[in-house]
Amino acid sequence: MVEPAHLAARRQHPDRRWWRPDWTARVALIPALIITIVCFYGFIVWTFIISLTRSRLLPVYNFTGFDQYARLFANERWWTSMQNLAIHGCLFIGGCVVIGYGLAILIDRGVRGEGLFRTMFMMPLSMSFIVTGVIWQWVMNPTLGLQEAVRDLGWVTFEFNWIVRQDRSIYTLAIAGIWQQVGLCMALFLAGLRNVDPNIWKASRVDGIPVWRVYLHIITPMMRTVFFTVFILMSAIVMKAFDLVVALTGGGPGFSSDLPARFVVDHILNRQELGMGAAGAFVLLCTVLAVISPYIYFELRKARGAH
């Protein structure tokens, strides 16, 4: 073929450019790299260092070894908050999983207006923990709230004053928390249910297995990874829980509904106990890492597999 003139003229080779595009890729990663190294891991180390010092209002760098940890573990409020974390964690995660899975199954049965139900179930999710806390504080108001409303209906001995009771206030956190997050669990479970091979349903119908048995013995075991994911996500939410306590109970009455995340912020920002707050933060971090490490391992194996 005869080369057209305008193409022949073009046929000269450029010299190698001095700048390679993958260098640009490296440069583009610098902000994220700095944030990761400095603001995530560097700051964790910094907090750890502070936790080894006598720091109160401002960081001072005279080291006292693990004294702050000793003080922390001798602190009654810390133990209350850790105990509360355990109670709240079990109730909140358990409630979210059970109710969320239940709702997902109900929707999965093929109902009309599925979108409407889903929208309603997930609506609390779009609201902040502060909003959630304030709403529930009002609903559970002992003089004008739910208790009074039910008594007005005629059940005069009805009691629902947990929010002002030392021994019950921690349970109110779980109620408000579940209300807010159950939609997320429902969505995750529903996504899992929709991924189930439809042939399983056909096969079980041919075999005449009742629907509840299919869910119990076949579908639920298949949803292992979804349960796992939900558990991890809800754990992460529990450990960070700060806003909800502040808005709902303020940690009270007394410190009866305090949580570690609030303990830490309180000691760092208000109580001029920087060293102990840092120690608490570090203990909190270790708890988080202990819970999420299997998940991270999973995710990274998946990420590597995607290559």
Binding site: R11, H13, P14, R16, R17, R20, P21
Partner: peptide
Amino acid sequence: AGRDMTKLEPDERD
């Protein structure tokens, strides 16, 4: 095309 392109980017190789 007679030139060493071992180290060149794909778009520089024609």
